[in-house]
């Protein structure tokens, strides 16, 4: 798995590429934690290039959402592909996190 990060003035866009499962979620979490600890608390997760997302990845997303909200920020999801959207829906996470159809729409929401 690779994590691509694009930083804008008010928002950082994080795009995991590949599989986010129990073997790779720690790497994903480390990148997100680094951003939050450096003060980037408005995050867009671009899930367009994710091949597989399991509960291990969802736990990282939720714990990041909680820590950003605690610091006055938020996390939203952009351009989730069919597989990622299905997992988020199965877990009921689509009703907790804002999901936007595109990266542009997600960035503009902050």
């Amino acid at each position: 798995m690779e994590v691509k990060i694009t930083e804008y003035k008010r928002v950082a866009v994080v795009q995991p590429v590949g599989r986010v499962d129990s073997n790779t979620s720690a790497e994903f979490e480390a990148e997100l934690r680094r951003l939050v600890e450096s003060g980037r608390t408005n995050l867009v997760l671009d899930l367009s290039k994710i091949d597989f997302l399991s509960s291990a990845g969802l736990r990282v997303i939720v714990s990041t959402m909680k820590s950003t909200r605690k610091n006055g920020g938020n996390v939203c999801v952009a351009a989730a592909n069919a597989r990622a959207a299905e997992v988020m829906k199965l877990a009921g996470l689509d009703s907790v996190i804002d999901m936007h159809p595109s990266r542009e729409a997600a960035v503009a929401s902050f």
């Binding site: 509960s55 199965l90 877990a91």
Partner: peptide, 25 residues
């Protein structure tokens, strides 16, 4: 019985979410 999103803890218990997904998938 429900997703653990309402927890006030930052970390979510390992396992519960996976089992929920198994049953729903």
């Amino acid at each position: 019985s429900a997703p653990p999103w309402e927890s006030t803890e930052t970390e979510i218990t390992v396992g519960g979410l996976g089992r929920l997904i198994i049953h729903r998938a």
